[in-house]
Amino acid sequence: MRFLQRERTVVEEVLPGLDQCLTALSPAELEAADSPASSCFATPVVPGSWCPPSTAAAVRTC
């Protein structure tokens, strides 16, 4: 059993590669002032992927 498996699956669907990128860093690297963790979030995300389709925001790029 993996800790937070369902949550990790959702993260992988929304931000592919983020979990793998963050787990490759040590805790010390994650907590450092000049942490490379922010580069893990540099993966392009499809515009509007954070907008629920039932909202007016879905018709524009979020």
Rank of each mutant, 00 (worst) to 15 (best):
E29L: 09
Q5D: 13
C21Y: 00
A57W: 05
P53T: 09
L15P: 01
P27Q: 12
Q5H: 03
G17Q: 07
P53A: 13
L18E: 03
S35Q: 13
P52M: 03
L15V: 11
T43Q: 15
V10F: 15
L22D: 06
E29R: 04
S54Q: 14
L25S: 04
A32K: 08
C62S: 08
L25K: 01
C40L: 06
A28L: 12
R8Q: 14
L4R: 14
L4V: 09
S49G: 01
A28I: 00
T61G: 07
R60S: 03
S38A: 12
A24D: 07
E7F: 07
Q20S: 09
G48P: 13
C51P: 02
D34N: 15
L4D: 12
T9R: 13
G48Y: 02
D19L: 00
E13L: 03
S26G: 13
W50R: 03
V45N: 02
G17V: 02
L18N: 00
P53I: 07
F41T: 05
S26L: 14
E7C: 01
L30C: 04
A58R: 14
P53K: 02
C62A: 06
E29V: 00
M1R: 05
S54A: 12
D19N: 10
L25C: 07
S39A: 15
T9E: 15
A28N: 11
E29Q: 15
A37S: 13
A37Y: 05
V45E: 08
L25W: 03
P36L: 12
V45I: 15
E31F: 04
G48T: 00
P47A: 08
V10L: 15
A37R: 08
L18F: 05
T61K: 10
L22Q: 07
P36S: 08
D19Y: 09
R60Y: 01
P36R: 12
E7G: 00
A58K: 11
E13R: 08
L25M: 13
D19G: 05
A32N: 08
A24L: 02
P53E: 08
S38P: 02
A56V: 12
L15Y: 07
P47I: 05
F3I: 08
